[in-house]
Simulated scan of single mutants.
Amino acid sequence: MSDNPNLSATGFDLTPPTAPERQRLEADLTAEEARVLLHHGTEAPFCGGLLGEKSPGVYCCRECGLPLFEHHTKFESGTGWPSFYAPFDEGHVKAVRDVSHGMVRIETRCARCDSHQGHVFPDGPAPTRLRYCINSVSLQFVKAGDPLPDPLHRGDKIT
Results as ranks from 00 to 15, higher is better:
H101C: 00
V104L: 12
D28V: 04
T128Q: 04
G78T: 10
F46G: 01
T18V: 08
L37Q: 08
K94Y: 07
C60P: 02
A44D: 15
Q117L: 15
R105V: 09
V99R: 13
Y85M: 07
F75A: 00
G118F: 01
A95W: 11
T18R: 09
K94A: 12
S55N: 07
R62H: 06
H119C: 07
E63T: 12
C113R: 06
G78D: 10
S100Q: 11
V104K: 02
L66A: 10
E33I: 12
A31S: 14
L66T: 14
L50N: 01
H72Q: 09
F121P: 05
R22I: 04
P56H: 08
Q23K: 14
G65Q: 03
P67Y: 00
G78P: 01
D123K: 01
R97N: 10
L51E: 00
F88P: 00
D89S: 06
S115Q: 10
G52I: 00
M103I: 10
P45Y: 06
V99E: 14
F69Q: 01
G57K: 00
S100E: 13
F88Y: 14
K94P: 02
Q117M: 13
V36H: 00
D28H: 04
A19R: 15
G118V: 03
A44N: 14
V104N: 03
S115Y: 03
E21A: 09
F84L: 04
H71V: 01
H92P: 01
L50M: 07
T18A: 13
F69P: 03
A86N: 09
C110N: 11
G48D: 04
E26Q: 15
P87A: 08
P17E: 12
D28K: 15
Q23A: 15
G118I: 00
R62P: 00
R24L: 09
G48M: 03
V36D: 01
R35Q: 07
K74R: 13
D98A: 07
G91H: 13
C61D: 13
K94V: 04
G65V: 03
H40W: 03
L68T: 04
L50F: 09
G52A: 15
F84Y: 08
